[in-house]
């Protein structure tokens, strides 16, 4: 088993001529937490969609567990063990919070568990894990913003993924909620899940990540250890703009 769980080679995605992702290469080691940051419109969500299979590549290769997955549809990637959350949460609105998570458990990696009662029991454990146990019987559509993010998280975890893609789960959270999210991500890694965290909130991600990737205008402008990357003049410029000389 190679140390690399995931590898992207030369990823390119265009939207009607606009280059959203351009020649992006990176690898993720098993058991790592990797942060992906970048200003608005840098192509972070597009990259997540390419990895999860919601969008097709224009060119490049994606390897997961040593096999090419870039031609597989989204559901097949989920079966292999890739789970994602959406930046704007996508619950199954009319269903209970518990059933939302149970659906994650009933499908997910290797097609999930077949038995609905078992899936619901698993769902309750994940709801407990993310701190949403009290709302298990609520209709998902009635959840507030932060709880919707917890639900996305629980749903993705119930899929029992090897790689979890978190698309801006901390955006719009209060500092206390951000702390809770950081704790959750650390505990998720402790369970053996590799995590790619896409974020706008830099301080939180700096503490969490083993490695940082910085995207700007679709290009990867820096990657490596968080302290080094965040001191890179190109990264500072991308976030703060060029200093006047």
């Amino acid at each position: 088993m190679s140390a690399k769980l995931f590898e992207a080679r030369g990823l390119v995605k265009r939207f009607q001529g606009l280059l959203a992702v351009s020649e992006v290469d990176f690898a993720i080691e098993r058991g790592a937490i990797v942060g992906l940051i970048g200003p608005n419109g840098a192509g972070k969500s597009t990259l997540v969609n390419l990895v999860a299979g919601a969008l097709r590549l224009d060119s490049g290769e994606i390897l997961f567990d040593g096999a090419r997955i870039d031609r597989l549809p989204a559901y097949a990637r989920a079966h292999l063990g890739i789970a994602r959350t959406y930046q704007i949460a996508k619950p199954f609105p009319d269903l209970s919070v518990r059933d939302n998570v149970a659906i994650g458990a009933m499908f997910g990696a290797e097609g999930g568990v077949r038995d609905r009662a078992k899936a619901r029991a698993m769902a309750d454990e994940w709801l407990d894990f993310v701190g949403l146990a009290a709302q298990a019987d609520h209709q998902a559509a009635r959840l507030g913003g932060p709880d919707r993010k917890r639900l996305e998280f629980a749903k993705a975890l119930a899929m029992q993924p090897k790689l979890l893609l978190l698309d801006e789960v901390m955006a719009g959270l209060t500092p206390v909620e951000v702390e809770a999210a950081v704790g959750l991500i650390e505990r998720t890694r402790a369970r053996g899940v590799t995590v790619l965290v896409i974020e706008h909130v830099v301080p939180a991600i700096r503490r969490l990540s083993d490695m940082l990737l910085v995207l700007q205008q679709g290009r990867l402008i820096a990657s490596g250890d968080p302290a080094t990357v965040l001191n890179d003049p190109r990264v500072i410029e991308a976030y703060l703009g060029r200093r006047r000389a």
Binding site: A78, A83, F92, F107, G112, M159
Partner: peptide, 11 residues
Amino acid sequence: EDEDAAASVGV
């Protein structure tokens, strides 16, 4: 409920 979300969870 949401076909995109369904595909993401492996349906």
